[in-house]
Amino acid sequence: MGEIKSDKILIITTISNSYPGADAVGQSHLEYDPDTYIIRLPDPVLLPEDFYLKAYSKGIAGIIVMSSGSDCPYEGAYERLAQRVQKIYDKMKENGISISRLKLTTICTVCKAAFLKEIKGMRENIEKLKAVKDAS
């Protein structure tokens, strides 16, 4: 696996919940890390396992999957997604990518604090990985 060069964080959001949640953060003028890129999907369950690995190989440093959790309009999709993410973790380990670069979480339409916390958490994870590498 190629070395991850950038600091970019990809945020996968749902049309129904986490994307409006990200808007709520904006409406409150709360600031967060600008090296973050939000993609809007019906549901993250749409993304195959290799999507994630490809994204890392392109240089994405971290991915936060902001699902709708139990508020998901697609009954049963969250369970599928959670299982898929488990498999992705396994593949990440196989490919020598730290699993701290992927986070599955649930963000509601007004979960502003949680949204910010997730970004902060992912940034910290990425910085930690960099520090380890610098030290070695």
Binding site: S16, S70, D71, T109, V110, C111
Partner: peptide, 12 residues
Amino acid sequence: PTLDCASCITTP
């Protein structure tokens, strides 16, 4: 009784 987030149901 579902503990859905109210604004997630009402906003759409």
